[in-house]
Simulated assay, not measured.
Amino acid sequence: PLVGRPWPITYRHDEEERVARLRDFGVRRFTAMLYPHKPEMAAWLNSWAADFAARTPDCLHTATFYPEAEAKEYVASAIEAGARVFKSHIQVGDYSPLDPLLDDVWGLLEDSGVPIVVHCGSGPAPGTYTGPAPMQELMRRYPQLTVIVAHMGMPEYREFLDLAEQYERVYLDTTMAFTDFVEEDTPFPRDQLPRLDALRRKILLGTDFPNIPYDYLHQLEVLERVAPDSEWIRAVCRDNATSLFGLGE
């Protein structure tokens, strides 16, 4: 309903089968993204994610938050428990990243250096607080925050490429970008392709598996269409994440 077109989920399997599929695909490490959309939800999701990571060693311990009075406490607890990456979805959560209830959260994340994947672009459907302006202000306030902009910031590709150029610790992920599904409505600007080369160390593979309307392989195939060379593919699909998350392999 939000995007006005069918979005069939390709991998409708249970948890065990989904993990097995990723391993069969050759994925060495993955995350477990979390999407709180109301108060008193994030702490429970963090508890589930900690348990999932403990029994799934190839999953990076993932955590999340929502603007609420308890956020500072459970984010601090998640970091202390070994969270390796956080998730913030501005559109699903329908909150501003500049909400004062998150001031301490961003401060904790900046101090810890734990990366946070933020869905802040206005695609595939805009939200009240999506777009580059709130994130530009957030980075002005917390310039050492380690942010991974989901979906290459679609459809505001240019502005989020600018943000990655401006701030040393702003990265982008490729989730759904360049795929036929996305290119039909919000194509990546052809005049921005050279910037992918210049930012090669700041782009990471993202897939949104399992909630994707195409086969997993398609995301990899489309990267070959835009890659300046094979070393770029290796950096995006392996080396950049290995370095950022300190995977030591």
Results as ranks from 00 to 15, higher is better:
residue 154 M to R: 10
residue 122 S to P: 07
residue 102 L to Q: 02
residue 122 S to M: 06
residue 102 L to Y: 00
residue 119 H to C: 03
residue 101 L to E: 14
residue 183 E to W: 02
residue 122 S to T: 11
residue 163 L to N: 13
residue 183 E to S: 14
residue 127 G to I: 07
residue 109 L to A: 12
residue 112 S to P: 02
residue 101 L to I: 01
residue 115 P to C: 11
residue 99 D to I: 09
residue 183 E to I: 05
residue 150 A to F: 09
residue 137 E to W: 09
residue 105 V to G: 02
residue 155 P to W: 12
residue 114 V to F: 01
residue 140 R to E: 10
residue 156 E to C: 05
residue 157 Y to G: 11
residue 159 E to A: 15
residue 168 E to M: 05
residue 134 P to V: 12
residue 145 L to G: 12
residue 107 G to D: 08
residue 163 L to P: 15
residue 103 D to E: 14
residue 183 E to K: 05
residue 134 P to N: 10
residue 153 G to K: 12
residue 179 T to K: 06
residue 106 W to K: 05
residue 181 F to L: 09
residue 159 E to R: 10
residue 178 F to C: 10
residue 106 W to C: 06
residue 148 I to G: 07
residue 168 E to D: 14
residue 144 Q to T: 06
residue 114 V to K: 00
residue 179 T to G: 07
residue 102 L to K: 01
residue 159 E to M: 05
residue 102 L to A: 03
residue 127 G to N: 12
residue 168 E to G: 08
residue 124 P to D: 02
residue 179 T to L: 10
residue 136 Q to K: 11
residue 102 L to H: 01
residue 142 Y to L: 08
residue 135 M to R: 00
residue 165 E to T: 11
residue 133 A to I: 08
residue 130 T to W: 00
residue 99 D to W: 09
residue 174 T to A: 04
residue 176 M to Q: 14
residue 173 D to F: 07
residue 102 L to M: 04
residue 151 H to E: 15
residue 120 C to I: 13
residue 149 V to K: 00
residue 149 V to T: 14
residue 138 L to A: 01
residue 178 F to H: 12
residue 153 G to S: 14
